[in-house]
């Protein structure tokens, strides 16, 4: 079975790669493109550690084939910061100690960034439901939710909301 040639855009860069049909987008990111920030926690769309943004929507990259990326625009956790300037969500995760082991963190960062792109002032409940597809086993979610709400406040130009 021959490999497929895929032309796509990842984190703002044009990217071409060869992949086999059964390789997931996550396999391609991690094993072909060395973008290992996206993690495989379950491989079944239940944990969200592999979350990426495809054409504006978050998806589990473990449930998308690498060949499906043809012509798409993809953002991974490696593309959330601008150069060495962290995104407010990243900054607030650090300030609120919203990570312990850090394995689920990339998925949360990507999902939370997408939430705040869409909803500048989410409630705690909206934030909890939006992030329900991201499992964290360390934190009990408390500090993650606070970090996201605080990042939203920062992005709205308000200080120290939570």
């Amino acid at each position: 079975m021959s490999k497929h040639h895929v032309t796509t855009t990842i984190n703002g860069e044009p990217v071409e790669y060869l992949c086999e049909a059964q390789q997931t987008m996550l396999d391609v990111l991690r094993d072909e493109l060395n973008l290992t920030g996206s993690k495989e926690g379950c491989g079944s769309g239940d944990c969200g550690a592999c979350t990426v943004i495809v054409d504006g929507n978050i998806v589990c990259s473990c449930l998308m084939l690498g060949v499906e990326a043809e012509g798409k625009t993809i953002t991974t956790v490696e593309g959330i910061a601008e150069g060495d300037k962290l995104h407010p969500v990243q900054q607030k995760f650090l300030e609120h100690a919203a990570l312990q082991c850090g394995f689920c963190t990339p998925g949360f960062i990507v999902a939370a960034k997408a939430l705040l792109d869409e909803n500048k002032n989410p409630t705690e409940e909206e934030t909890r439901y939006w992030l329900a597809g991201n499992l964290c086993r360390c934190t009990g979610y408390d500090k993650i939710i606070r970090a996201v709400l605080d990042a939203a406040a920062l992005m709205r130009g308000e200080a120290g909301a939570v």
């Binding site: 991690r30 060395n34 973008l35 290992t36 920030g37 996206s38 993690k39 495989e40 991974t76 956790v77 490696e78 959330i80 910061a81 962290l86 990243q90 995760f93 650090l94 300030e95 100690a97 990570l99 850090g102 394995f103 963190t105 990339p106 960062i109």
Partner: peptide
């Protein structure tokens, strides 16, 4: 006090190397 953890930045930008990240 509550300073930022030393391995924090690597973890929020996806650069930290976990078990499956090594090649």
């Amino acid at each position: 006090t509550r300073p930022v953890r030393p391995d924090g930045v690597e973890k929020v930008i996806g650069r930290a190397n976990f078990g499956a990240d090594m090649v």
